[in-house]
Amino acid sequence: MKPFTTVTGLVAPMDRSNVDTDMIIPKQFLKSIKRSGFGPNLFDEVRYLDEGQPGMDNSKRPLNPDFELNKPRYAGAQVLLARKNFGCGSSREHAPWALEDYGFRAIIAPSFADIFYNNCFKNGLLPIVLADDIVDRLFDAVASTEGYKLTIDLENQKVVTPEGDAFDFEVNAFRKHCLINGLDDIGLTLQDADAIRAYETRREQETPWVFGHIR
């Protein structure tokens, strides 16, 4: 997982409430055997004019010109600005996979659905909750300023605007530690590698038949 310290990135707006995980990544893509490569199908149903299927060449599909992410001014965005209850619906982890694969590092919204919120941290994405009025202001700023960028300083838990305004946000200390150090659940467990090895050494004495016999 990529460590997250400070990110200064272009902001793209997603101006609708209750964006569910099926909208983030439609169910036909769940049959995939992969966890990478979902980026081109992020928001598939609103992003393209035809119906997406796994295995299609997405570069040949007709784009919806009205969809924000298709506008050249938002190309390469790393911060998604969203509305309330983002990520509701099915618990599919494919949703954060798709957002991350697309290139997003952080999502700002007035609220998030629970499971989605948790799944973000596991996949190196930072979900940031800001008050409604601040989110409104940011939507205005993004609309009126081409190339609008925000700086997200996780260490100090601040979202900093180009004008120099700084908004504080909350994040669980443990999750923050994991993100800053690029630790997913596995990385975290591997911090206990010595304890695991010590356990194995002891168990190998006690129950040797459990070790080393499937080859």
Partner: peptide, 22 residues
């Protein structure tokens, strides 16, 4: 299992032990 293996690959990790998997 496919996404689990791919996760390992993406993170550049190896299985902790081989003789335990079937």
């Amino acid at each position: 299992s496919p996404q689990a293996f791919e996760g390992l690959r993406l993170a550049g990790r190896k299985p902790w032990r081989l003789d335990t998997n079937l």
